[in-house]
Each structure stands twice: as structure tokens, then as C-alpha cells.
Amino acid sequence: MFIITCPYCGDRDQTEFTCHGEAHIARPLNTESLSDEEWGDYVFFRQNPKGMHRERWVHAHGCRRWFNALRNTVSDEIFATYKVGDARPPLPENPS
């Protein structure tokens, strides 16, 4: 049961949030010119790393804002949360 720091509201219980997977996947602008593989890669394929993961959360039962988090998927430690469009925080020196 995480405590997640919503960049807009502060520390809140995990039950107020929903996770929406890997962050920083930009929708291709030129979809018509993509190959099936490139399109499939955008729609379906994910890093799914064992370790540091940049991911999207939404404060669903709060301000309803989307934001990004940097979390270790092994320890579930959240190192940072940041607004969409903000610079990506660096990876921690001591991730676990």
C-alpha cells in the first residue's frame, strides 16, 4: 500500500490513484507512414523493467490529474513524482 505524492495534492494513499503503465510513450504523429511493426510497438510493446520504471498515475479519487512517477518495481520504492511535461528526475544513486 503505497503512499504516493501527488504533485498537486501531496501525500495520499494508493487507493486514491490508478496506474496507467509506462510513461513517456509519445503518440506517433505520422501514423499512416508507420510500418505495422512500428505501430504495434507503440500500441502494445513495453519495457516492463525489473527495476526503475517511469510510469503514469492518475489521482483518480482526488484532483483527477495525471502525473508521472519514478518507481523501483522490485522494492516498490517511489523516488519521485513529477508533472506531465516536467523534466525527468534523474535515476537515484542508490535504487534499492
Binding site: A26, V58, R65, W66
Partner: peptide
Amino acid sequence: LNWLEEWLQTEWP
């Protein structure tokens, strides 16, 4: 609503 917000907030802010 979540779908609309997702696109608005994360792709086309």
C-alpha cells in the same frame, strides 16, 4: 471521461 482526460493531460496538454 478517464479516456478523454488521459489524452488531454498526457498527450495534448
